[in-house]
Design a protein around this nucleic acid. Structure first.
Lengths: 202, 202
DNA sequence: AGGGTTATGTACTGCTCGGTCAAGCACACC
DNA sequence: GGTGTGCTTGACCGAGCAGTACATAACCCT
């Protein structure tokens, strides 16, 4: 009986997400969102509630998409540690390809909204945790396959790699070149490949 | 002949800096700045010009202070690579001690203001470049002292370490624990210490 | 075809924003 | 101690903000 919506909710969320990603939370006005989504303010409030809620939806959408992309990369389980390097490479490619410098929304969200918004912190933490889990599986398989020395702590190593991806993202925003970022990938690969435990130190 | 200012300019900049660091650029109002500095709006405009200019001054101040702190750490030239690890440790300590989650202003500035503000990008790039230079000297000395394998590319390795500090900063905002961050320090140290070039791969 | 229900568009609210400005004030110099 | 300079104060501006109210429109079901 009710009048149906004439817009697609997920599409609107994605449009809002891109605006937030470009401008950040505070600098995005409802008018911006209205223009980007094509919805009137009334519809926005009717559908989502206030600005904070739209942002959360948009951020959630971004995180889900990131997770899906990563899952796809890590689906190739047989390559062991190579899969993890592939993920690092993917982050580099994304960073480099991001000509508009929108940047990763997880970084943007935590930087701008934490500690003000616990919901953002929680979603970001969960998403990063997922990435680390994927990396860790890859590390462990690499250890099983003899690609990675088994004495290395897989939790620490996977967190290091997560940390490096976050760092790459940050450096990308400061205009470091593709070659610079690839150099990071290459040296960490070299260090992991060339690691042999010394008898003295554990 | 003119009436002298009754405030200390550098003190006002520091107060403004802290507000910007906490709230970010867009979310900081002139009223916030006025309250934090104790100056009237008129005085602020008279002294600094518009909001953008105050921000740049504040950011510049932050970068200078970061550089000074880092220079002090790296002044101990004899420790070679240990100095670089000390720097990483310092970033961890800062991140952990930052109970208010203000975060590093370089990260905040590049995330929020790039590409909109080229001046911010430039200042951030210069500051990060300085850090990398310090790290690189430390790496090279470490190689000379036999702490670090000489076949490793010092530019790449120093950029990797810079990258890791940026990553640590980012993870800190997502509430990773002190132990997690220390684990990152420990594993990168282990990788560098335990690296031996394989005859096959360079 | 009509009615119930919800979506939509628009005008509007009260507020706060960044920024201005004029009037007075305090000091260093004469 | 007067005078001029430029600092300070606080009222003020138009614009844009997040959010609301309400009349109207569109659809499904009966």
């Amino acid at each position: 009986m009710p009048r149906p919506r004439k817009f697609h909710e997920a599409t609107a969320v994605r449009a809002a997400r891109d605006v937030f990603r470009r401008r950040g939370y505070a600098a995005t006005s409802l008018t911006d969102l209205s223009e980007a989504t094509g919805l009137g303010k009334g519809s926005i409030y009717n559908t989502f509630g206030d600005k904070e809620t739209i942002y959360r939806r948009a951020f959630h959408d971004y995180c889900q998409e990131s997770i899906a992309t990563s899952d796809a990369i890590f689906a190739d389980a047989d390559s062991g540690i190579e899969t993890a390097f592939g993920y690092v490479r993917q982050i580099i490619d994304e960073t480099v390809a991001d000509a508009e410098h929108m940047g990763c929304m997880i970084a943007k969200a935590t930087t701008e909204r934490v500690p003000e918004s616990p919901a953002v912190l929680e979603e970001a933490g969960r998403t990063l945790g997922h990435m680390q889990d994927l990396l860790r599986v890859s590390v462990i398989r690499g250890q099983a396959a003899g690609q990675v020395d088994s004495s290395l702590d897989s939790a620490q190593l996977s967190l290091l790699m997560l940390c490096i991806t976050r760092g790459i993202e940050a450096l990308g925003k400061a205009d470091y070149t593709t070659d610079d970022l690839r150099g990071i990938e290459s040296i960490i690969r070299q260090l992991i490949d060339g690691y042999t435990p010394t008898p003295a130190a554990e």
